[in-house]
Simulated scan of single mutants.
Amino acid sequence: MLALDRKGVFRFAALQSDCGRALLQRSGRAPDDISSIVLVEQQGSYIKSDAILRIAGGLHMPLPLVAAVLGVLPRPVKDGFYDAVADNRYNFFGRTSACRLSDPRFEERFIS
């Protein structure tokens, strides 16, 4: 997502960090719940497929169109797909030895 967010709209915080734990609590989640992606916006927070689709909607085309089409599916279907991809993410996307946290191009995008 870092590379796809060309405008730098989204910021990241590790859920285990003080900031991440505070954002989890603000979102009504337990501060130690790191089970899913959480998108926190001014008007609310979103998890799992809702978070992914809102993020996709904020990126460049065709991702907003894909998000709009998939957004009409029932939440259990979307979250089931999210869980399947999350459980197998290394099979789908591979592993990398590099950490984006140490990439100077994205340094300002991570909240510490």
Rank of each mutant, 00 (worst) to 15 (best):
M1N: 13
L2M: 01
A3T: 11
A3N: 13
A3D: 13
L4R: 13
L4D: 11
D5G: 02
D5S: 08
R6V: 11
R6D: 03
K7M: 05
V9Y: 02
F10A: 03
F10I: 08
R11G: 04
R11A: 06
A13V: 02
A13Q: 01
A14M: 08
L15M: 14
L15I: 06
Q16S: 08
Q16L: 03
S17G: 11
S17I: 00
C19T: 14
R21G: 09
L23Y: 09
L23A: 11
L24M: 09
L24E: 00
L24I: 01
R26G: 11
R26E: 14
G28W: 04
G28H: 04
R29T: 04
A30V: 07
P31E: 02
P31Q: 03
P31D: 07
D32L: 15
D32Q: 15
D33G: 04
D33F: 08
D33I: 08
S35H: 04
S36T: 11
S36W: 03
S36L: 02
I37G: 07
V38P: 00
V40A: 08
V40G: 01
V40F: 07
E41A: 03
Q43L: 14
G44W: 06
G44L: 03
S45E: 00
S45A: 09
Y46D: 01
Y46V: 00
I47P: 05
I47L: 14
I47H: 10
K48H: 10
K48C: 05
K48V: 02
S49T: 10
A51T: 01
I52S: 12
L53E: 00
L53T: 03
A56T: 01
L59M: 14
L59R: 09
H60Q: 10
P62F: 09
L63G: 01
P64Y: 07
L65R: 09
V66A: 14
V66C: 12
A67V: 03
A67H: 04
A67K: 05
A68C: 14
A68G: 15
A68S: 15
V69E: 05
V69K: 12
V69S: 09
G71R: 02
G71I: 06
V72N: 06
V72E: 04
V72W: 15
P76H: 04
V77Q: 07
K78Y: 09
D79L: 07
G80E: 03
G80V: 06
G80Y: 07
Y82W: 07
D83R: 13
D83S: 10
D83M: 10
A84H: 14
A84L: 14
A84Y: 13
V85F: 02
V85I: 13
A86L: 01
A86E: 01
A86I: 00
A86R: 03
D87V: 06
D87W: 08
D87S: 14
D87C: 14
N88K: 11
N88R: 14
R89T: 00
R89V: 00
R89W: 02
Y90Q: 12
Y90W: 10
N91I: 06
F93Y: 06
G94D: 12
R95E: 11
R95D: 07
A98C: 14
A98S: 15
C99I: 08
S102G: 13
S102C: 12
S102L: 13
D103C: 12
D103E: 07
P104K: 03
F106T: 09
F106R: 01
E107H: 10
E107F: 03
E108L: 14
R109C: 02
I111P: 04
I111G: 04
S112I: 03
